[in-house]
Design a protein around this nucleic acid. Structure first.
Lengths: 337, 337
DNA sequence: TTGAAAGCGCTAACAT
DNA sequence: ATGTTAGCGCTTTCAA
């Protein structure tokens, strides 16, 4: 039987031979140990260069019992996930931090049925830790991941346990601020297109909405939830328009849904920004691309992604990390309200 | 020194002991060898079950000299990549096929400067093959990947070599059809917002545009290129409107850019679909979300992703595969032209 | 059909 | 500061 073509690089053994030292010394150089003489260091470095040596990842993992890889777990339909600029930012933030480390990121699509496979994969020792980018309260298999590898959630998990780590934005405060903003501008007949009831971001933003309405003595004109997608937002907005006979303003719990809401509004001859004030949530690229530009609640998604990655990296390095990181939001006023 | 907590699963040795067979037999069962007696098979299966055994990936890779993982190389700014529904489909297609195999997908963000790191990673034997999702003619480091692992390009590479594998859509035919469509509808003053000149998709669609204009005896009113992003499309459209004093129709080389073009048009009081016919390219979710709904050239992105993955899987399995796969496009008529 | 034995390329004590 | 040695958990000849 013929061997596969030798595409791999040289081995540590070859480097050692060329540099006239032992495997151990090469290993030390590669791993940045200080206990190496300048002479040996130089010789090894040159040998590595000349041989284009690249350590074999599998061998390294096997010996060191760590993979230097983390998994990005996506328990979401792929197209839903990849189509949303919010996730784009999160992933960009994560990969920025991961790329700067010597870790590597694996994408693990854990669609509903494949959750067992995902768990098995994590158990197979393929990664040292995991990040969950987005999740629904129904994704209970996630709770079992921490038994296998350290895990960091993006967004507060449905049921927070003492041992959980997560990075979230203050969705309640954001929802409250958005609603208060509308109220301060004199709007009284206010509705909301809330996020899904099975995601904490949806729940919290809605809670913030109520938190601002009640003390002002206002009753919501309507509350309809969408799934954070554009069409979900359009549908919900349409239901609101059907159910009510007039509103001044609407708080839409995501920018993407706000885009859908714009369309639904216009389909009824209602001009967003003029006839009905609209405020969104995210401050993703969608908000400025809209006309009129969308007033929205900025959440620092890029930063959230970065934090998620650094918390995990801290955990993996044995450094202490905060269990809960809550990032602030802020109102960005534009033309729609 | 204390060992890391035992989060890993049982070893093959433990399974063997429990089943009363040797390591070899367990290995055979795990790898689906036929040369195992029913009795042994049954015993091993039960032991695996009871112990929740999951083979260690690193050990397996080391011994078998293959990783059962592939890399998705993304030589693009992360946010550009993740924000585009076109890529969302491509990735969805790829991951669908990969998930159905026992391969695993690693995301490799190879931003400009990090190309050396990416190459080093591929050389480290971390993956058995690679897929390049999108690339510019300037990404020359990609050409060196095939020396290390089998590679499949999404979209025709700038310079096709005999040994290259790629899956593309027929962009020339698509661009030609889009333009012919406008001409057939009686439009004469036609412009195009072309794709970037450093991507073959951009080049080919523009070529198709010219291929349709010339035989009809028409001269383009204007040609401006965008970078396939929404704002790039808006900017290009705006340049066209500045440079010319009237046009009937415009072929915009991507749906995302068409969305930008809509905005640019409206900013000048020109209503897309009524004052100027617009045709896009992609048939992504953007096209139907637009109002008026965008007439566009459908390209089978999901299928393209699937094909990319299966070509690579074929290659890895030693099966023959076509070097070039060209998928057809078709016009989808909606309201904008 | 099965088991023994030899590595895969590396890290990490342990000596020196 | 450096080398020796013993594995990491698995696959894969080779014998039996």
């Amino acid at each position: 039987m013929e061997l596969a073509p030798v595409r791999g690089s040289a081995t540590i053994e070859e480097v050692a031979a060329r540099a006239g030292v032992s495997r151990s010394t090469v290993s030390r150089v590669v791993n940045g140990s200080t206990a190496v003489s300048p002479t040996a260091l130089e010789a090894v470095r040159r040998a590595i260069d000349e041989l284009q040596y690249e350590p074999n990842r599998a061998a390294r993992s096997l010996a060191s019992r760590q993979t230097r890889a983390i998994a990005l777990v996506i328990p979401e339909q792929t197209d839903r996930f990849f189509g949303d600029p919010f996730f784009a930012s999160i992933v960009a933030g994560i990969s920025e931090v991961v790329a700067a480390s010597d870790y590597l990121m694996n994408m693990l699509i854990a669609s509903d049925d494949a959750s067992a496979k995902a768990l098995a994969y994590l158990r197979g020792g393929s990664v040292d830790g995991a990040i969950v980018a987005s999740h629904h309260t129904s994704d209970t298999f996630l709770e079992r991941i921490p038994d296998v590898v350290p895990l960091v959630y993006g967004g507060r998990p449905a049921r927070v346990r003492d041992e959980d780590y997560y990075v979230d934005v203050d969705n309640v405060a954001g929802g409250r601020a958005a609603t208060a903003f509308l109220i301060e501008r004199g709007h009284r007949r206010i509705a909301t297109v809330s996020g899904p009831a099975d995601m904490t971001a949806g729940i919290d933003r809605l809670r913030g909405f109520h938190d601002a309405m009640a003390p002002a003595g206002l009753t919501p004109v309507a509350v309809e939830s969408g799934d954070f997608s554009e069409s979900g937002g359009a549908l919900a907005m349409d239901r609101i328009l059907t159910a009510t006979d007039g509103l001044d303003a609407v708080f839409v719990a995501s920018d993407l849904m706000a885009r859908g809401a714009y369309a639904a509004l216009r389909a009824r001859g209602v001009e967003p920004g003029r006839d009905v004030a609209v405020i969104g949530f995210d401050d993703s690229s969608v908000s400025t691309a809209l006309a009129p530009a969308l007033t929205t609640v900025r959440q620092p998604s890029l930063e959230q992604g970065r934090r998620m990655a650094s918390v995990l990296l801290d955990l993996l390095a044995g450094r202490p990390a905060a269990h809960a990181t809550i990032l602030p939001t802020e109102i960005v006023r534009r033309a729609s309200s």
